[in-house]
């Protein structure tokens, strides 16, 4: 019945030095639908693929605004993500109250990491079953962080987590140069294209199943508030994606003729 004797709680190491409950939690992240995050020199973008439980239900929210300078994209258990995002909202509101400043991104990410780590070390607790991509800006510029149920955090230039996210990561790795020098709108298109890579044959990006979040520094150095694009607001973004895709296929065709 059990895979082994060392996965009954989250605080026991296996003889190989593994904590199985934490690894299972990371599996929960892989079950969640894919989210992509990427940064250039001014902006951070989150892109997510939304799923609906059944044909008649609404789509699960993938991107949550934490504060005007920050948002998170979630992959995994949405209810665990709600707990974490509510905590993040409280913390960033607290910073605005006591210091009158938006909380630095690395600070709040460290705080949720500490919280998540506690769940892997205390008896009777379970790790969060959710991975997060945290995108935000502070005085040091735009940031993207990856958060895992183990309490591990990494600052990233581009990242994807969730089901079939490897395809998106491959795209991001191949286009890293372009991404880091791109404009705000190009960054969104790169995000959408990475997301598109993960789709199975019979699926495509629509205004219903796509979600885009953008935050960054405007031309004057002021924070450009977190903006969530959903529903009809996505139409122009998806159009740009389509145009750039068809331009690319044309290019490829001509290249084939040449050879």
């Amino acid at each position: 019945m059990f895979r082994n004797n060392y996965d009954n709680d989250a605080v026991t190491f296996s003889p190989q030095g593994r904590i199985f409950q934490v690894e299972y939690a990371q599996e929960a992240v892989k079950q969640g639908s894919v989210v992509v995050g990427l940064v250039n020199k001014t902006h951070a973008v989150l892109v997510g693929l939304k799923r609906n439980a059944e044909e008649l239900s609404s789509y699960q929210k993938k991107i949550i605004e934490i504060d005007s300078h920050m948002g998170v994209a979630i992959a995994g258990l949405a209810s665990d993500a709600r707990v974490l995002s509510n905590y993040m909202k409280q913390q960033s509101l607290g910073s605005r109250m006591t210091y009158g400043r938006p909380i630095p991104v690395d600070r709040i990410v460290t705080q949720i990491a500490d919280r998540a780590q506690l769940n892997t070390q205390q008896y009777g607790k379970r790790p969060y079953g959710v991975g997060l991509l945290v995108a935000g800006v502070d005085e040091a510029g735009p940031h993207l962080f990856e958060f895992q149920p183990s309490g591990m955090i990494h600052e990233m230039v581009a990242c994807a987590i969730g089901a079939r996210s490897q395809m998106a990561r491959t795209y991001l790795e191949r286009n890293l140069e372009q991404i880091s020098t791109s404009s705000r709108d190009e960054l969104i298109t790169h995000g959408l294209r990475a997301l598109k890579e993960t789709l199975s044959q019979d699926k495509e990006l629509t205004v219903d199943n796509t979600s885009v979040g953008v935050v960054g520094q405007g031309a004057t150095g002021k924070t450009e508030s977190f903006k969530l694009y959903e529903g009809q607001q996505l139409v122009p973004l998806l159009e740009v994606l389509e145009q750039s895709d068809s331009a690319e296929t044309r290019e490829e065709e001509t290249m084939e003729v040449d050879s």
Partner: peptide
């Protein structure tokens, strides 16, 4: 302790102290 060092300015400090 944060990666980017102390980023609190005088205004932030004043808000904090008044609280």
């Amino acid at each position: 302790y944060s990666t980017h060092g102390n980023m609190l300015n005088a205004k932030n400090l004043h808000t904090y102290l008044s609280k």
